[in-house]
Design a protein around this nucleic acid. Structure first.
Lengths: 193, 193
DNA sequence: TCCATTCATTGACAAAAGTCAATGGTTTTT
DNA sequence: AAAAACCATTGACTTTTGTCAATGAATGGA
């Protein structure tokens, strides 16, 4: 239990067995069936979720009911509405399962206690969020500076595993496009090659 | 010297006078004239820069020479090519001054020593990057989910001070638009009101 | 196995955004 | 003070993307 979680943790910060024990006591496992919500817009986000198995997405829904996908999370990734989690404000994101999933949850109180008790936990969080920030900055840079086709190629190169497991209309949504437009980009790419 | 830097620091994490002294010894002041570079694409980013005074921008330049602005930084903000700073890889961003500026620089070695010596510094960095992550996520969310006019209104509401000090074609660039398109959005907004 | 969904693709058309060029008003520089 | 550079706006036109509708393939449940 929690194998992948601690594997990833130890890649960033090396833990002794005793430290792993302390952390374990603050974790909660949770299983989610496909299409189940982890978080709904309007509720307060109570957890940071680490994905041991399966796949989830975070997204917003507009007035017309159209989804825009903010983030995917496969095995080894972390997902949450961080703003809601940290401030206690209602979430603006929905999070649900694309496939049956096994999660490791860290509650707000667990998070706060670990920050106090265990300096290595703070380091882990710092490194985790730094990586997420850099990845997000690259995504944004490619959004504002690259033509569509390049953006799509970048996506495929960066997340080949997502491209395989997730339907294309969700990738379109993640890129801020309609499914039709992404489909046409793809057909242009394959015909011109 | 460093007034704003420590003011902002203390808003996040409270420092004793002794701790402030330790940090001070790791800081370097730097002045930049308008249009001067702090960092050029291809060089390694050697510093995290805190803006005491003035305004800077980070941006990429495409093959055709067009700039896309990744980030603005006014007084109290931090700017850097974090990926290059942390990995030592060549920077993909350029950073230069929009106005004469006074900066507080933290070098790589200073950063690493402070992380080791001063737990509160790590906390400061964690909170800083968390705030930057959340802001970036909001920006991205609005990019993929909102119509242009809403995005522009959000920008004005969030950064009225940037809108005042920065030419509009740079705001267009920051939004991933041409100056003409932003101009037409604005004229539509004012005529329809 | 069959039926209902979900999905990707395509076509025709509409709307949005980009491009190019010109104008006039600022600001900056010399 | 004059000249140069910068900037925002507008018009005419092109290209890109979105919308709506239809089709056929694949998928998943009953």
């Amino acid at each position: 239990m929690y194998e992948l979680f601690f594997h990833k943790f130890n890649e960033k910060v090396n833990l002794s067995k005793e430290e792993e024990e302390v952390i374990k006591q603050h974790l909660t496992p949770k299983k989610l069936r496909k299409k189940q919500y982890l978080l709904q817009e309007g509720d307060v986000c109570k957890h940071i979720a680490f994905v041991e198995k399966g796949a989830l997405k975070a997204y917003v829904v507009d007035d017309a009911g159209a989804e825009s996908i903010i983030q995917f999370a496969l095995e080894g990734w972390v997902i949450s509405d961080l703003y809601s989690f940290l401030t206690g404000e209602p979430a603006t994101y929905n999070i649900d399962a694309l496939e049956d999933a096994e999660l490791v949850l860290i509650s707000k109180s667990a998070h706060e206690e670990l920050l106090k008790k265990l300096p290595k936990y703070e380091t882990y969080i710092r490194l985790q969020i730094t990586g997420a920030y850099i990845a997000l900055q690259k995504r944004l840079t490619s959004m504002i500076s690259l033509p569509l086709e390049e953006r799509y190629k970048n996506f495929l190169a960066l997340y080949p595993n997502i491209a395989q497991r997730v339907p294309q209309h969700m990738i379109a949504s993640y890129m801020g496009l309609t499914p039709e437009t992404l489909s046409r980009v793809r057909s242009r790419m394959s015909s011109r090659k």
